[in-house]
Simulated assay, not measured.
Amino acid sequence: MDPALRAAIEITPAAGTYERIIDITTTGRRTGRPRRIEIFFYRALNQTYLCSGTSGRPTSWYANLLTHPEFTLHLKHGIRADLAARATPVTDDTERRRILAEIVADLNQPHNPGTIAQPTRLEDWLDSRLARITFLPT
């Protein structure tokens, strides 16, 4: 992978809100049509994730990825690129807790890299939708 793309994906805790915002295009689970939304992505344990946050409500993007796991991740701030990817739901409770604990610690930094109220608590994130991103060769 191009070093500039890798740097844009492998954000560090120093990354601000702007660097964490991407678009994803999923395939609609019922319609089969492309669905593009803006979403935050996260880095934890040297992996890239999508997460629904603290609401615990069902999300269309996650339901779409359960049916059609391949999607396009669109980098749009700084570097622009459309990356082929696959989502894998993270369902193991122990693994989810480890990943979400790192995400919450990142979001609770003094410079507040997200748009959530601080401090946020791990317990509020445990029912979120969480998917690991694997980038596909092009």
Rank of each mutant, 00 (worst) to 15 (best):
P89F: 01
D127M: 03
D2E: 07
L83K: 01
A44Q: 08
T12S: 15
R121V: 13
A87D: 05
E70R: 03
A7I: 09
E123K: 06
I9W: 08
S55D: 08
H111C: 12
R129T: 00
R30T: 15
R57P: 00
L126I: 02
T25C: 06
P137F: 08
A105L: 07
A8Y: 01
A44G: 07
R43A: 10
T12F: 06
Y62T: 02
T120Q: 15
T31Y: 03
A4H: 09
A7C: 11
Q118H: 12
D23N: 14
R30P: 09
T67F: 07
A8L: 13
R121C: 06
M1G: 13
T67A: 15
P110M: 12
T48N: 07
I133P: 03
P110F: 00
H111K: 13
A7T: 00
D82I: 04
I22W: 03
A84I: 02
L100E: 00
W125E: 09
I11F: 12
Y62A: 12
T17W: 10
F40W: 15
C51K: 03
L66D: 06
R97A: 11
N108A: 06
A105R: 14
G114P: 01
G53L: 04
H111T: 07
Q118Y: 12
R35W: 09
L122T: 07
V104H: 03
R36A: 10
R30L: 14
T26E: 04
T54A: 15
N112T: 13
M1F: 10
P137Q: 10
A8G: 04
G16V: 09
P3L: 06
T26A: 02
P113N: 12
R43C: 11
D2N: 15
L130Q: 07
A81W: 12
L83V: 03
I22L: 15
H74S: 11
G16C: 08
L136D: 07
T12I: 08
V104I: 10
L73W: 00
R96K: 02
A44H: 05
A44L: 08
T31H: 09
I103V: 15
D124N: 15
T17M: 12
Q118C: 09
I11S: 11
L130A: 07
H111A: 14
P113Y: 04
C51M: 08
R35N: 09
K76Q: 15
E95M: 01
T17A: 00
F135S: 05
A8I: 07
G28C: 08
A117D: 09
T17G: 05
P58A: 01
A14G: 10
T59H: 01
H111E: 11
Y18V: 15
I22H: 11
D92A: 08
E19N: 12
L73A: 09
R132T: 03
A44K: 02
G16W: 14
T134V: 09
L83E: 06
I133T: 04
G28F: 04
I9R: 06
L65S: 04
T120W: 12
T31E: 06
T25N: 01
T54I: 14
S128H: 13
P34W: 03
R96G: 00
R6G: 01
I39P: 10
K76Y: 08
G28N: 13
A101G: 05
E19I: 04
A105V: 02
F40P: 08
N112I: 13
L126W: 00
E95A: 02
A117F: 05
T25F: 03
A4W: 06
E38A: 12
I133N: 05
G78I: 13
W61S: 10
R29D: 11
R121F: 09
R29G: 10
L100D: 01
T67S: 13
T94I: 02
